[in-house]
Design a protein around this nucleic acid. Sequence first.
DNA 1: GAGTGGTCTAGACCACCCT
DNA 2: GGGTGGTCTAGACCACTCC
Lengths: 253, 253
Amino acid sequence: MNKRALGQNGSPLHESVRAEISRRIADGIYKPGDVIMSTAQLGEEFGVSSITVKRALRDLQSEGVLTSIPGKGTFVKDRRRFIREVDVCMSSQDDARRHGFDTKIELISITKERITDPALSVFELPNKVLLCVRKVIYADGVPIMYDSAYVPTNIADEIVDEFGERYIVDALRRHNVDIKDMSIIIDASPASVEAQRIFSIPNGYPTLRRLYDLKTKDPATFVIGIVESPFDRLACSVRLNSLQLSKMVKTKK
Amino acid sequence: MNKRALGQNGSPLHESVRAEISRRIADGIYKPGDVIMSTAQLGEEFGVSSITVKRALRDLQSEGVLTSIPGKGTFVKDRRRFIREVDVCMSSQDDARRHGFDTKIELISITKERITDPALSVFELPNKVLLCVRKVIYADGVPIMYDSAYVPTNIADEIVDEFGERYIVDALRRHNVDIKDMSIIIDASPASVEAQRIFSIPNGYPTLRRLYDLKTKDPATFVIGIVESPFDRLACSVRLNSLQLSKMVKTKK
DNA sequence: GAGTGGTCTAGACCACCCT
DNA sequence: GGGTGGTCTAGACCACTCC
C-alpha cells in the first residue's frame, strides 16, 4: 500500500494531515468560505483512510478553523473577531454601537432558580432562589455572547421588563440603581453545552468567559452572572494610560 | 447485542458515555487523582466498543477533565487555578508573591527574529528584527504561563541579562524605563504547538492569552508580547471600585 | 441516486508501564 | 506477559443535501 505520503516522521498520521490542511489554509490555497475536498478525496490524495482524514478535520473544527455541514461539505471559516473594552463588557449598549457595530439582544428565558454553575462559585453566592435572565447578544447579526445573569427576585417588575431589550446594567442605571463595586474574572473554558447549541460549535471548542459580580449600595440588590463567547468571535481589551499607570504604582505602595 | 445501555435519546453514543463519566466526576465517584476504569472495562459496562469509549475520553481530555498516561491509565485531573489582577499580569513578581504563591521563571531562549505570530497583528508591528525572549513562569512548581516578548535589539545588555530572572517590566523599571501606555488584549485560543509541548496538553485544549503592547516615552523602546496559559491554570481578574466607576461614567460623556 | 460528513464497530498493531 | 492508552483501517450504516 502507498501509505507514507505524509507522516515520514514519528508523529501520528492524523497530525500530519491536519498540519498539511492548516498549511493550505495559511497559504491561501483554501480560502475562507471555500469548500475543501471531501474526506474521501483527501484520503486518496494523502494515502490514508477517510476515517483518519475525518479525525484530522474534527480536530481542526475544535480549533475553529473549519466547519462541517453534514451533506454539504467542510468549509473554511472566516475569522473576524470583535474586541470590547473590559469595562464595556456588561455596560452600555450605546457604547457598543459607538464602537461601530450593531448589537441586538435576544431574550432566551427568565426563570427562577438557584445558581448551580460551579464556575460562579469563585464569588460569594447567595443560597436562595434568584431570577435568572438568559440572553444571546448579536453583533452584526452574528451571535457573540451568551449571558446568564442572576438578580434578586424582588427586583421591580418594570426593571425586569427591560431586561429583554437592554443590558442589565443599563436597565438598572435607568432606574437610578448604580453599581458600587464590580469584580470581573476573565477566563477561557471549553464550550458549555448551551454554548455549543447556541453558537453551533463542537464539544471542546474554546470560549472566552467573563464572570461578574456587581454590587450596589443596597446589599440586597446585586447582579451575578457569566458571559460566554466563542474564542473566534470576541476578545476583550484593556487600555491603561500613563495617568492610570502612575496611580497604580502609587496605590501599590 | 446489548447496545443502548446508554444513548436512548437521539444523541451519539460517545456523548452519552462522556456525559456519564462527567457525572461520575461531578458526583465524586471518580475523584481528582484517581485512575478511572480502563477503556475496555468501561466499554463492557456501557455496552459500547472500547473505541467509542476512547473517543469520549479524548473529548474529556480536551475539556481538561481527564489526562491519560499511555501504559498507566486515565486520571481525573485536579483543577486549581490561579487568578491574577489584569494589571499584574505582566507586572511585578513581588506582587505575585504577595498574592500568596511562589513564582519561578525559566528562560527558554533569547533569539533575534521578526514577529510572525498572526495573533499579534492586532497591534502595529515594527517590521524589523527584534529580540525575542521566551520564558515559562511557574507558580508553586506548576507551569502556568508561556511568555514570548519582543523588544528592540538595541536594549542595553545589562537589562537583557535580567530577563531570565525577572519580568520584563520589572527589569525595565529597575533601569528607570517607565511604561507610558499599555494596551492588553485578552482572548481564548486553542493551544499553540509550543504550549501543547510545554504544558503537556492535547491539541485543541483551550488557553487564555494576553497580548500586550507596552510603550515608553521613547518610541524606540517598547515591549510587544503574548502570554499563553492553559485555561485550567490561570484566570484574570479585574476589580473596579466606585471611585473608578464614577470616573468612567464621567469620561464617557 | 450520488455525494457528503458523522457515527459505530471489530480487529489489528504499537509503545508504554508494571510486576 | 498482560495491562494500558493511541492509532489506523475496512466496512457498515445513518441523515443530510443537491440534482
